[in-house]
């Protein structure tokens, strides 16, 4: 029972981690919070739904389609809500506000398009249950977990092994120096935003898959939870986002299993709160002084 809850928590936490990775990538490079991230997540799910339901695609191409859709919306985000502010300077609160604005636009356009109704998301998957000793997993859960791990590994590889990854790390270290070294900073920022959006989009498709439905408002709870995860893991910290996602996923599963279903959402926010007060740099962050200076 306990182990089963841990497993369920890890599966759920994997999607949290994917969402959180999107926030943390953008924060790492731009030191801003993309408040439209939850809505990019939702659009990924919507595109995935459209490809499966309207065009009859199977899961893997629909997943990739959802990622591409979200990434393209990421381009819109960069050019409408981020780049215009970057040229003006100012604090990192301005992009916080403008991305809230874009998020409202995206979400409410989709509310209009779907009449505010959830859409049923049925992917042709075998309905089987896989047993592993006392533990069991549905096929959907297995897919969610597998894809999450695969995407995280892919991201890790991209960041550590590719030219793009090196450029991303250089820009997050110091944009001026990176520019002097010949890195195309604007290009790297655009690529990072697209990458972050794509991860969010993938998480959206996976969440739609596990709940068998998608809706225009599904982004908000996941967006907020992703924020809690990155605070837990430390803003801008990739490993922290993964660990934070898993921790919150598991704790939520345990809370539900041991009688506190109504307080499930309070787990993430309680943690967010405690962390900000006790250790604002997150579990894996640097020093508190550095956080307070920003």
């Amino acid at each position: 029972m306990f182990l089963q809850q841990i497993l369920n928590g890890i599966t759920q936490g994997g999607t949290y981690a994917l969402v959180a990775l999107g926030y943390t990538l953008i924060f790492g490079v731009l030191e801003i919070i993309n408040m439209a991230h939850g809505d990019l997540f939702m659009m990924g799910a919507m595109v995935g739904w459209a490809l499966v339901t309207l065009l009859g695609w199977s899961l893997v191409p629909a997943l990739i389609g959802g990622m591409v859709g979200a990434a393209l919306l990421g381009v819109v985000l960069e050019f409408t809500a981020l780049r215009p502010l970057r040229r003006k300077g100012g604090t990192n609160l301005s992009p916080l506000i403008s991305t809230i604005g874009l998020g409202m636009v995206i979400q409410n356009l989709m509310v209009r398009a779907t009449n505010g109704q959830p859409l049923s998301f049925r992917v042709p998957l075998s309905e089987g249950v896989i047993r592993l000793g006392p533990l069991q997993m549905t096929t959907a859960q297995l897919v969610v977990l597998g894809v999450s791990i695969l995407l995280m590994a892919l991201l890790q590889w991209t960041l550590s092994r590719t030219r793009l990854g090196r450029a991303v790390r250089a820009v997050s270290e110091n944009p001026e120096t990176a520019a002097l070294l010949g890195v195309n900073v604007s290009g790297v920022i655009l690529a990072t935003v697209m990458l972050a959006a794509a991860l969010g989009g993938a998480a959206g498709v996976l969440v739609g898959l596990s709940f068998v439905s998608v809706s225009a408002t599904m982004g908000l709870p996941y967006g907020l939870k992703g924020l809690a995860v990155i605070i837990l893991g430390g803003l801008g910290n990739v490993k922290g986002a993964v660990a934070g996602g898993l921790i919150i996923g598991v704790l939520e599963a345990l809370t539900v299993a041991y009688g506190g279903a109504g307080y499930k959402d309070a787990v993430a926010f309680g943690f967010l709160f405690l962390m900000l007060l006790l250790r604002p740099q997150g579990l894996f962050g640097i020093s508190a002084a550095a956080v307070r200076r920003s």
Binding site: T91, I231, L235, F273, L276, S294
Partner: peptide, 10 residues
Amino acid sequence: RLRGVYLAIA
């Protein structure tokens, strides 16, 4: 004690 985006999120 928190500033900027940290305070907003908290």
